[in-house]
Design a protein around this nucleic acid. Sequence first.
RNA 1: GUCGGGGUAGUGUAGCCUGGCUAGCACACGGGACUGUGGAUCCCGUAGCCCGGGUUCAAAUCCCGGCCCCGACCCCA
Length: 407
Amino acid sequence: MMDFTKRVRGTRDFLPPFSVKRAEFLRIIEDTYREFGFLPWDTPALETAELLTSKGGEEIREELYIFKDKAGREIGLRFDLTLPTARVLAENKTMPLPIKRYMIGKVWRYDRPQAGRFREFTQADVDIFGSDKPVADAEVVAAPWTALKRAGLEGTVQVNDRRLLDAIADYVGLPESRRAEFYRAIDKWYKVGEDGVRKELGELGKYLDRFLEFNNGLDELPEPTEDIKKAKDCLLKLGEYLDDFGVIWTFNLFIVRGLDYYTGPIFETFVDRPTSILSGGRYDKLIGLLGGRDIPAVGMSIGVDRALDLYVDSMDLQAKEADVYVAVIPGYEGEAIQISKELRAGGKSVFMDVTGRKLGKQLADAERRGIRTVVIVGRETEKGQVVVKSLESGEQKTVPIDSMITL
RNA sequence: GUCGGGGUAGUGUAGCCUGGCUAGCACACGGGACUGUGGAUCCCGUAGCCCGGGUUCAAAUCCCGGCCCCGACCCCA
């Protein structure tokens, strides 16, 4: 016997009431992005394996969904929204700059699933193309940060800069060949603390000591070299703008992020757990590497499913299925349709009963769905009236159809 | 890729160590008591031992193998 109820590993079904909250969250994000002047883009879920593997080594294939199509072409599912977008910009060489775009979509990674980590998940990106100014960095942080705040999640953005890391690495003599290893280790600071990082670093710990000389806050950061001073000034400027936007942020020398894209400021956002729900950075070289013009770019991405997985209970999201429940007495279906139509025209979302079950069942159904206002459509319609009942107070009155919208 | 913990109705669980009633309970779901008034109560109903093999008179229970889930590490563009 086949089991047709199996799901693909690491994927999820979204059902009410969770799916209602999820939709609400996505709506808040999208509205906020639009308010900041970002425009919607969409690109295919499928991309060529060539593109997907263009950054990072062969081992990156282990993290991807890649397969051959019927013609033998190697294709795969996108693992983020940045690379496909960069592909579009590399391909369309005359798009008017700057571009502020957002994209909300599913991405896939062949990771081992665990808490806050899935094989199919949703990201909500904003990116600005065509500006290398700190004000662009700040805005691209502010839009998603504000969206999270509106959803009830006030995070702290940890800010760092790749150029600062590299400038300090140059200054303290950290060999190029050991940098990836070193950065990967210090990136875990937030999670495992200094002791954990030191343990992983081993003999590289001596460089950590040198890095710690630069860890006394951004204002007091020493400037022994010109590169360090430049990176610092850039971060100070960025910080000012973040303050102007009202973003809560802090400088953190031990934020690194992935090693393949980023060339400037980098961001991770935490609420009260060591798992980032909003991250990104500046990647000025990517589009050029894909064959386009060199276009400066900076982007951020909300980990939508991760944020919901970790925080849905403390978020400020509506779970109500509709504004009004239309209960229908058998025989009055036509009237109920008309009345539902009017309610919708008045801006209400309407759940109309379609089962013809008895009234008691319909009221219980409304209750269960979290809908607190019921319009009962029955014999009163013959006098142009309906019964409007509040499930909250239990009160009800018979009113003319025209005036029901105000209730 | 490495390591741990688990799989009993839709969900959560009891039973397992110490094999043996018809596998119990709660919630949820459907129907009824109540033929036009919800949340309470009562009654009825649907529905389960992950798969395969072994031991035994007898396996949810013990043994072996497999599959799957959860979590941690690695990695996370």
